[in-house]
Nucleic acid binder design. Sequence first.
RNA 1: UGUCUCAUGGUGUAAUGGUAGCACAACAGUUUUUGGUUCUGUUUGUCUAGGUUCGAAUCCUGGUGAGACAA
Length: 352
Amino acid sequence: MNLNEKRVLLGMSGGTDSSVAAILLQQQGYEVVGVTFRFWDEQQDIEPGYIQEARELASHLNIEHHVYDAREKFQTEVIDYFIAEYLAGHTPFPCVKCNNSLKWKLLLILSEEYQCSKISTGHYALITEQNSFFYITEAADKEKDQTFFLWGLSQYILQKTVFPLGNFIKSEIRKIAAEKGFQRMAEKKDSMGICFCPGDYRDFLKKQESVKGKIKKGNFTDETGNFLGRHEGYFFYTIGQRHGLGIHLNKPVFVKEIIPDSNKVILAPIEEINQQEIILENYNLINQADFSDKFDIFTKINYRKQPTLSRITILDNLHLKVELQSPVMAVAPGQSAVFYRDGKVLGGGVIK
RNA sequence: UGUCUCAUGGUGUAAUGGUAGCACAACAGUUUUUGGUUCUGUUUGUCUAGGUUCGAAUCCUGGUGAGACAA
C-alpha cells in the first residue's frame, strides 16, 4: 500500500476542537483529509447540522472532506452494548466502547483508503515514544485531559496517531479559532453527556423496545437482606448512586450492588461501598515490563477523580487484579480503570 | 378501664417563655465527551380548641392520636 507520508486523516465532528486540530495540522505541514462520522442522529432523515459545519470548515481550509455513515455500526457496537450492559446490571462506558471498537477502527480503515499515513483527532492528549513503545500521554490542559477514554488503542494505531491539541489549553484553542475567523466555532459550547442519549439515560432506556417489557419494580435491601423499600427496576440504578432512590433512612445510603436475577438493589452506608481490590477484564497493557510487584502505578476509575497508588497483577490473558493503596468508592462493573505513571497511560481495562 | 410519657417539614430530631435549626429525602443549578459521586441553592413543619403572657413549640385546661406500665 502506498501511503502519503504527509497526508493525515482527521476525524472532524464539527466542533471547536477538531476544527482547530485541522488548522494546527495544516500549520505543521500536513495535508489534511477530513472525515465526519455520522454515528447517530436525532432525526433519521435529515442531515444533521454538524456535518454541514464540518463540510463548510473543510471547504474554508481547502481540505478534502468525506462523510461516513456509521449509524448501523454505531447501533450494534455502542447502543446495543449500552442497553445490554444496563440489563446485565452493569454501568456501561459508551465513549470508551466507541473509541475501542468503532471510531479508531474506522479511522484506520479509511486512512488507508485515502492514502493517509497518519490518523488524528481533536482529543486533548499527547503521544510519546519510549523504548519503541507508544504511550498516550496527558495533555497540557489537565482540566480537559481525555487520556482516560483512550486506554484501549493498539500500538499499531498509536504509532500512526497525531494529537495536535495536546500542548494547548482550551482557551488557547478557542482563541485560535477566533483568530482564524471562525468566531462561531470559537464560542461553541463543549459537548457533554452521551451523544446518543441527551439527558437522563433512564429516559433513553425506557424508550427502547428491548427494555420496555423488562421494567419491573423490585426491592431495595441492606447488606443482610432486610427490606428497605421499593425500586423502579434494577437497571435504573448504578453503583455508588445516592440520590433518586426515593428512600430516606436519615443517613445517606448508596447503591452497593445490583443483582439482576432477583431484581434486587442493595444499599449501604458510604463506608461499606468502598473497595480496595478490583478485577479487570479485556485489559490492554502497552508494555508488561512497566508493571512490577510494587505499588507504583496510579489507577484512575473516573476521569475526574484523583488517581490512587496501586499494584497490578496479571491473572490470565483476560484478567488483571488491581490492589489499591487506599479504598475508592463506586467501583462499577463496566466502567474503566486506567493506569498512569509519569503522565503516561500504561494501560487499562474494564471493571468486572 | 386506671396511671404515666409523648405529639415539631415527607422521615428522624433540636430549640431554658424571645428569629423554629440540623440531618436524611425531594427539587433546581453547577461540574462533565460515560454512569455515579461532589458542590451550591430552594421548597415543605410546631396535632386540635381554648387560656395565661408584651411575647407560647415551650406554661395551663379540654379534645384527638401514639406508646409504656397496671389490671
